[in-house]
Simulated scan of single mutants.
Amino acid sequence: MTGRIDAHQHYWRIDARAGCWPPPELDAIHRDFGPADLAPLLDAARIDGTVLVQSLPSDADTRFLLDLADETPTVGAVVGWVDLKAADAPARIAAFASAPKARGLRPMLQDLSDDAWIDDPALDRAVDAMREHALGFDALVMPRHLDALHAFAQRHPDLPIVIDHGAKPFIERGELQPWLSAMRRLASLPNLHCKLSGLWTEAGRSARANNVRTRTRPYVRALADLFGPQRLMWGSDWPVLRVASACGGYGEWLAACEDDCAQFLGPAALADVFGGNACRFYRIDAASRGA
């Protein structure tokens, strides 16, 4: 596989998000975002395709993303949402998987009241359906979910799982443990992958361009060491990245990650971290990108 891939970005319509995140006070992202907004950033960064990820736990939002992907050549894969514990979850998953660019599912674990929601045999039928349709699992988790995620991943060793945003470590307060130990356990499982995304946002609103690299580098190094050049994939988390605009924009986040990964993994790893791994995980090829 070839091509530079942004493994994590969002599009949304703000009028469909009443009562949901983002709140109006986050004015940098409290508006509509669509392909025309991202296109110049992709061109400037020489990014060939993206993975479009859900941001609402609704069938309507997933349908919106699938329809948008059909008309957007740069979208190579869609990660949607299905109620994985619904009685008809296998049928819903089959319907989702029938879309040309459907490649994965993501329950919004960080927003659920039960931190152990994922550690439940009630998900087994849904996971069987995901494997049947070659879908991956995006884990939107925080450090408090990592033990339950480990149990889930052990129960389903044949399910490809990718951890979004490095599991959102507490970068703002400089806390490495217990996040690091939990991530080490997860990285020991061969079906676990990780996205190098979202870290500037986790650095906090006080982070600025002159210190964000210092704050985030220990976490980037940890992810590089744990997941290596074959299981780490870069993502922008755009437009959420705009919340961290004081640190820089799309191109600055990309350049910082390229620099760190070249240092920690070697220049030869960049093709995989910034494209190849996402292409393999999400089964993206030139045809799925509309090329």
Rank of each mutant, 00 (worst) to 15 (best):
E25G: 02
E25S: 15
A28D: 12
I29A: 06
I29F: 01
I29S: 04
D32R: 09
A39Q: 13
L41H: 14
A45M: 03
A45N: 01
A45L: 03
R46G: 09
I47N: 03
I47L: 07
T50L: 07
V51K: 02
V51Q: 08
L52N: 11
V53G: 11
V53Q: 07
V53A: 04
Q54C: 10
Q54G: 12
P57W: 00
D59F: 00
T62C: 02
T62E: 02
L65F: 10
D67N: 13
L68Y: 00
L68M: 13
D70I: 03
D70A: 15
D70V: 05
E71I: 12
T72I: 12
T72H: 11
P73D: 14
V75P: 01
A77Q: 12
A77N: 12
G80A: 07
G80K: 10
V82R: 15
L84E: 03
A86P: 02
D88N: 11
A89V: 03
P90N: 08
P90K: 06
R92Q: 14
I93G: 00
A94T: 11
A95L: 05
S98P: 00
S98W: 00
A99L: 01
A99T: 01
P100T: 02
K101P: 07
G104M: 05
R106S: 08
Q110V: 06
Q110K: 09
D111C: 02
S113I: 06
S113K: 14
A116L: 04
W117Y: 14
I118L: 15
I118G: 02
D119W: 05
D119G: 03
P121I: 04
A122P: 02
